[in-house]
């Protein structure tokens, strides 16, 4: 009764090409989204913890808006709504990337801010006692320690976000999910296709976690878990 035909997935060369392309696109989106989102998130976290209301309130509003609405709605808004308002036409890849970056940044900001709050008070105090200025203390003392503390959380968040990004296939970005749907629409082996995709996503997330954890050990060699 069980008649699994996985070979139907690589039956045609175009299927294989689309799959490989899709994996590449998914990885590229995650790298770009991860890096840009991290930089945005850092700025947001700093603004969120600022004493200046003009910075604090907009950044808090943005973070809460993103964290309390689904990615798919944000995606449709950025890809279909914004172009109408601003009358621009970006390729969907760019719009989708923008949506991902904005989405990631809000989650990262919240984690990074928790990191700031968790750096021991004695650290900035010792830095002050050495005569270091506010900006130096933030850049050289608080920030590196905050990032090291929350790095595992950032990695987990990254992997979690990766698992939500398949939805960008909805706006025509040819990622891994898109490739799967492309194939399933043509060979009608939806079950096998999505099993393969599921495994691919699981493997990719293991890979991301491994690479990022190793990176963390390189970047924060001094860090000891308490």
């Amino acid at each position: 009764m069980i008649d699994l035909r996985f070979y139907e997935i690589w039956r045609e060369q175009i299927f294989v090409e689309k799959l490989i392309n899709g994996i590449g696109t998914s990885i590229l989106l995650m790298i770009l989204g991860g890096i840009i989102g991290f930089i945005f998130g850092l700025a947001l976290a700093t603004a969120r913890g600022s004493k200046i209301r003009f910075l604090r309130i907009p950044s808090a509003t943005f973070i809460e808006s993103v964290r309390n609405t689904p990615l798919i709605v944000q995606l449709f808004f950025v890809c279909f709504g914004l172009p109408m308002i601003f009358e621009y036409r970006w390729p969907f890849f760019a719009s989708a990337l923008l949506a991902l970056c904005l989405n990631f940044s809000a989650y990262y900001a919240e984690i990074i801010r928790a990191g700031f709050d968790n750096v021991e008070y004695g650290q900035s105090e010792a830095a002050r006692a050495l005569g270091l200025g506010k900006n130096d203390i933030l850049a050289y003392i608080v920030l590196p320690q905050a990032l090291a503390k929350v790095y595992p959380s950032l990695v987990s968040q990254f992997v979690f976000l990766f698992l939500t990004t398949g939805i960008i296939s909805e706006v025509g970005v040819e990622d891994l999910t898109w490739a799967g749907r492309y194939i399933a629409d043509r060979n009608f082996r939806d079950f096998e296709v999505f099993i393969v995709l599921t495994i691919a996503y699981a493997l990719l997330s293991v890979m991301f976690r491994g690479v990022l954890t190793a990176t963390g050990q390189l970047v924060f060699p001094w860090y000891r878990e308490k």
Binding site: E120, Q123, G131, P144
Partner: peptide, 23 residues
Amino acid sequence: NATDIQRRVGMVFQQFNLFPHLS
């Protein structure tokens, strides 16, 4: 004018407060 003072005064803390991320 705290920094003016602090650069002239050295301080050693009970908990050392060394920066763990720096050699």
